[in-house]
Amino acid sequence: MEQRLVIVLVLYKKSLSDCPSYNALYYAVSKRKNMHVVVYDNSPEEHGDVLYKNNQVHYIHNPANPGLATAYNEGLSLFQKLSAQLMLLLDQDTEIDFPYLDKIASQTDGESVGAFVPLVYSGNQKISPVFSDNYVGGGLSFPEIGKTSHRLMAVNSGTVLTASGLAAIERFNEEFPLDFLDHWLFWKLYQEKQEIEVLDVTLAHDLSVLDYSQVSLTRYESIITAERRFYQNYDTAMLTVHEKHLLKRMVKQFLTVKNRKIWRRTWQEYRLLAREGQ
């Protein structure tokens, strides 16, 4: 039996038709009555598209740009209204095809797992999912295909949450409007004893924050502040490890990143946490 699927796509300064998943979404709502799309547009200007005339597509424009968590909660409202079974989180730079959507909708393990996650690559680098029993930021280790009760972390985009998983988290945490929302999400699923199933599906995703030389100081401020909030208020067992990792990161940034403000901000963060830990 096919499951009812709600897809939440978040846009920022990009039209829907320019997204690599556009054809898959167009086909999905044209051919499948069980698939609905929420397009949450954080762009300064509203974008039009012929797809918005489809009753299964819900376009929301919010120039205030509240980030991902607010958008996902809008998708959750539709999910609950439709009594859907699955919700797919999707970034504007992630490419999916229609067979992936069909595979998701035909999953039969929705009552026994909190989320399905694909294998995600940024270029040739595998980035998700990863084991997160230990601090995520050093050497990464990756799970096998299939279900696991071990603690995992996966990027938001491509993640499929089940009704069970969504009930467990209740709502997306708007303390993390953008960065570290994925860390909080999978931390919460683990706290609620929700199993994760890794799918034998590979997706491409452009994760620019992997390279600090390409990250603006404003964006880095968002990342490093969200890190502190996560480790101080949620995954507190890893706070000391995070503090030590900041020092290592600062040294690496000093040697490799031209924007000197980046490593200085990391040094400032390290000193802040060190003082608070005294």
Rank of each mutant, 00 (worst) to 15 (best):
F131C: 05
F131Q: 03
V117T: 08
L140G: 02
L140V: 11
D133L: 01
A115K: 08
F131V: 09
P118K: 04
V120M: 09
S122L: 13
F142D: 07
V130N: 02
S141D: 11
I127T: 06
F142A: 10
G114E: 15
G139I: 12
V136S: 01
V130Y: 02
P129V: 09
P129W: 10
Q125G: 07
Q125P: 01
A115N: 07
I127L: 12
S128T: 06
A115I: 05
S141Q: 11
Y135N: 00
G123F: 05
A115Y: 10
S122Q: 12
L119F: 11
V130E: 06
G138F: 06
V130T: 14
S122P: 01
G138S: 02
G114A: 09
G114I: 06
V120Q: 04
N134K: 13
D133Q: 11
S122I: 10
N124P: 02
F142W: 14
I127R: 08
G123S: 07
G123W: 09
F131H: 08
V136N: 00
V117I: 14
G123R: 06
P129M: 08
F131R: 01
N134P: 00
F131L: 04
S122V: 11
Y121N: 15
V130P: 00
P129C: 07
G114L: 10
S132L: 07
F131A: 04
G123E: 05
V136G: 01
Y135G: 03
S122M: 13
Y135L: 11
V120C: 07
F142G: 06
F131M: 04
F142R: 12
V130L: 14
A115Q: 07
F142N: 13
Y135I: 14
P118L: 11
F131P: 00
F116G: 01
Q125T: 08
G114Y: 10
S141M: 06
Y121F: 15
Y135S: 02
P129G: 13
E144A: 13
L140K: 08
N124R: 08
G137I: 15
N124K: 08
V130F: 09
P143M: 14
S132Y: 05
S122Y: 13
N134V: 15
N124L: 13
G138L: 04
P118T: 04
E144F: 10
I127F: 05
S122E: 12
D133H: 06
F116K: 00
V120K: 02
K126F: 14
I127Q: 08
E144G: 04
P143C: 05
L119E: 15
V130M: 13
G123I: 08
Q125D: 12
A115S: 09
K126L: 15
I127K: 13
I127G: 08
Y121P: 00
P118N: 05
S122K: 14
V117R: 00
Q125V: 03
S122G: 14
V136I: 13
L119T: 07
L140P: 00
P118G: 06
K126D: 07
V117Y: 01
Y121R: 09
V130H: 02
G139D: 02
N124F: 11
S122D: 14
P143D: 11
S132F: 04
V136C: 03
F116Q: 01
L119D: 09
S141T: 15
E144W: 04
P129N: 12
I127A: 07
Q125S: 05
G123A: 12
L140A: 12
N134Y: 12
S132H: 03
F116L: 04
S132T: 10
G139V: 07
F142Q: 11
S141C: 06
D133S: 15
K126M: 14
G139T: 10
V130A: 14
D133F: 03
